[in-house]
Design a binder for these strands. Structure first.
Lengths: 150, 150
DNA sequence: TCCTAATTGAAAAAGATTATCAATAAGGAG
DNA sequence: CTCCTTATTGATAATCTTTTTCAATTAGGA
């Protein structure tokens, strides 16, 4: 299914700005930040507002047509690390983050990806997202309450 | 080695603002953004400039005492995804990103972390960073040139 | 071709981050 | 313990990113 079909299928209109953004992303060899997409569009002679770039990206993200790439700089949250532990699992309910060990588990994957892609890997970013035990309990209680009162 | 020793050992001074930031991070149950650290300090009656929070975090990051946590929102770069492929390896030389498959390799780790932490995992973020083949070549040429001309 | 509602763009607001520079304070020397 | 030097701080301002607002535009069905 083409992205146009996905877009229309989800009830959105196929518009000029959306086509421009998709075309630019399609021709890009590296991830682009919104302002870069905006500038590229201008250089290509397209009329496109920066705000529309933001809105289009948010939509494409929702549709799963694009994904985010995290560089080391930017706006992030900070947590302390223990020696040797550099991976976190973050609760999407309350934000609580705890560390977990297991970088070794990535070794096999790292080696394989290096061979397949030809890239020389020297760092990685791995994070899990989920519900902490407390938020799981809260979610269960919520469901119980709903089933009893609705 | 305590963080104070690490700080001083690296040639930095042990100051009030740095202690406050470390204490707040130490007591935090979730990752904190700079402004949240700043507000917490104010609520605790500490005098601390927001700018110092930024500077302190940058320093702690350099020393490896804190790490970044990436939430799904925020300022990031965007790339297209292929169906089923949601992981990227990004060249730190030129920014070029390509996808790789292998989410299955995380299954065992996911299961183990779920058991160990009690979290219910429903998403993850995995990215590799390294040098693409072209940038590796460029790096090799650079070294050759240096060894010949210096 | 017309109509309606989704979408856009410009401007402004809100937030986040960085640069500047005089005032302050950490920590070694005496 | 006091003084001195210099790293560090905090206030202000500048810069940049992202979101909000709202009137004008336009996609796509009638």
């Amino acid at each position: 299914m083409s992205w146009q079909e996905q877009l229309v299928g989800a009830g959105y209109r196929l518009t000029r700005p959306r086509s421009i953004v998709m075309e630019i992303l399609n021709n890009a060899k590296a991830p682009l930040v919104p302002s870069a997409i905006f500038k590229k569009a201008q250089r290509d002679g397209h009329s496109l507002g920066l705000v529309s770039v933001y809105r289009t990206l948010a939509l494409l993200l929702k549709l799963g047509l694009v994904t985010l790439v995290h560089f080391s700089e930017g706006c992030h949250a900070y947590v302390l690390v223990s020696p040797g532990h550099h991976h976190h699992i973050i609760c999407v309910g309350c934000g609580k983050a705890i560390e977990f060990s297991g970088a070794e588990d990535l070794d096999a994957l790292t080696t394989r990806v290096q061979q397949e892609t030809g890239y020389l890997i020297n760092d990685h970013l791995l994070q899990f997202y989920g519900l902490c035990p407390a938020c799981q309990q809260a979610a269960i209680k919520e469901v119980e309450w709903l089933s009893k009162n609705i």
